[in-house]
Amino acid sequence: MFVDYLSTILTTVHKVPGPVDPEKSFQELDVDSLSLAELGAQLEDEFEVTIDEEELTPSTTVAELAVLLESGGAVLPA
């Protein structure tokens, strides 16, 4: 579920060309460090989770971030 949500954010807010391959890293998707920091801050605010800098790096994949959010207790609104 979070993979779809993250893909939508990446294509609409961060202008990543879709479709987003969840197994690609943010570096492979050409997400720059500023956009990555903004994404992390947005997710922390929206889902009230903490994402450490070591967990969200250019080498992190979309799928890994989705797992991180789920394991941190984030819940998508119905």
Rank of each mutant, 00 (worst) to 15 (best):
F2Y: 03
P77G: 04
M1H: 12
Y5Q: 04
E55H: 14
F26D: 02
G73A: 07
I51C: 05
L39G: 06
D32C: 07
L6Q: 01
T12L: 12
L6R: 00
S25V: 04
E44N: 07
E38A: 15
L36N: 04
P77K: 05
A41E: 08
E38L: 15
S33V: 13
V75R: 12
F2A: 00
T60W: 02
E54M: 10
D4V: 05
E38G: 12
L56T: 04
E70K: 00
L6I: 07
T11I: 07
L56V: 09
D45S: 14
Q27D: 10
V75C: 03
E48Y: 02
Q42N: 13
Q42T: 15
S7G: 15
S71T: 11
L39M: 12
T11G: 04
A78C: 05
E53D: 15
L56S: 07
D4I: 03
A63R: 11
D21M: 03
L36P: 07
S35V: 03
M1Y: 06
L34P: 08
S33C: 10
D30G: 03
V20K: 03
L34F: 09
L65E: 02
V67A: 13
T50L: 14
D30L: 11
E44H: 06
G72K: 15
I51A: 03
L39Y: 02
D30A: 13
D4P: 02
D30R: 14
V75T: 10
A41R: 12
L68K: 13
A66P: 10
D32G: 03
A41M: 15
T60G: 03
S7Q: 05
L69M: 03
P17N: 11
S7M: 08
M1C: 07
G40W: 11
P58W: 09
A63Y: 01
P19A: 07
D45H: 11
L6A: 04
S35K: 06
D21G: 00
A74G: 09
Y5I: 04
S7C: 09
V62G: 04
V67F: 05
V67T: 15
I9E: 10
L76W: 01
V20I: 11
